[in-house]
Simulated assay, not measured.
Amino acid sequence: MQRMGMVIGVQPGKVETYKELHAAVWPEILALISSCNIRNYTIFLKEPENLLFGYWEYHGTDFEADMAKMAASEKNQEWWSFCIPCQKPFETRKEGEWWAMMENVFHLD
């Protein structure tokens, strides 16, 4: 299992929209996330800075293939068409990232 954390901003005026979307995530998206070996997926919001912190645990063996499967899903592309306009990625993110991945520096079970 691999623990992963990531961060992104929320566009000004889009916080409520983002909250509403995630209060009722489509069942197809929830099933897709699970089928891509992601568990304990959580998104936290820090206001007034409007930062999102995402955490998940990856339980698969081929992360790149699972992320490609997720990206290729037509339903997920539709979901992203609503979510992405709400998000404000960091200029310092690595090439190919939307959410900026974070280094795990501490964990206690």
Results as ranks from 00 to 15, higher is better:
residue 28 E to W: 05
residue 61 T to F: 08
residue 7 V to R: 09
residue 94 K to E: 15
residue 2 Q to C: 14
residue 98 W to Q: 05
residue 58 Y to K: 07
residue 23 A to D: 15
residue 6 M to G: 05
residue 2 Q to R: 07
residue 84 I to G: 01
residue 2 Q to G: 12
residue 105 V to C: 07
residue 71 A to D: 14
residue 31 A to M: 03
residue 73 S to A: 10
residue 40 N to T: 15
residue 52 L to D: 03
residue 8 I to P: 01
residue 15 V to E: 05
residue 54 G to T: 04
residue 77 Q to M: 07
residue 87 Q to N: 12
residue 24 A to M: 05
residue 20 E to L: 08
residue 31 A to L: 06
residue 82 F to P: 03
residue 14 K to P: 00
residue 105 V to L: 12
residue 44 F to K: 11
residue 29 I to M: 11
residue 92 T to P: 02
residue 19 K to V: 11
residue 85 P to L: 13
residue 99 W to I: 02
residue 3 R to M: 03
residue 21 L to A: 07
residue 25 V to H: 10
residue 98 W to G: 06
residue 25 V to N: 04
residue 17 T to M: 07
residue 19 K to H: 07
residue 27 P to W: 14
residue 53 F to W: 10
residue 85 P to K: 02
residue 7 V to D: 06
residue 2 Q to N: 10
residue 79 W to R: 06
residue 67 M to K: 00
residue 88 K to D: 09
residue 81 S to E: 11
residue 68 A to H: 07
residue 41 Y to T: 04
residue 25 V to S: 01
residue 88 K to M: 09
residue 49 E to R: 13
residue 81 S to C: 03
residue 16 E to H: 12
residue 4 M to V: 14
residue 65 A to C: 00
residue 82 F to Y: 11
residue 26 W to I: 02
residue 92 T to K: 13
residue 21 L to E: 08
residue 49 E to G: 04
residue 40 N to G: 13
residue 77 Q to D: 14
residue 108 L to N: 12
residue 44 F to D: 08
residue 4 M to S: 05
residue 68 A to C: 12
residue 107 H to N: 04
residue 93 R to K: 01
residue 84 I to N: 15
residue 4 M to Y: 09
residue 20 E to T: 15
residue 90 F to Y: 14
residue 52 L to K: 00
residue 86 C to R: 00
residue 51 L to G: 01
residue 30 L to Q: 12
residue 2 Q to W: 13
residue 5 G to P: 01
residue 71 A to P: 11
residue 102 M to K: 12
residue 96 G to I: 06
residue 57 E to G: 01
residue 51 L to K: 11
residue 23 A to N: 08
residue 64 E to F: 03
residue 65 A to F: 12
residue 99 W to V: 01
residue 26 W to R: 10
residue 77 Q to A: 11
residue 41 Y to W: 11
residue 89 P to A: 09
residue 97 E to D: 03
residue 73 S to D: 14
residue 109 D to K: 05
residue 35 S to D: 05
residue 84 I to V: 07
residue 88 K to H: 10
residue 79 W to Q: 14
residue 58 Y to H: 07
residue 109 D to I: 04
residue 6 M to Q: 12
residue 50 N to L: 10
residue 41 Y to L: 06
residue 89 P to M: 12
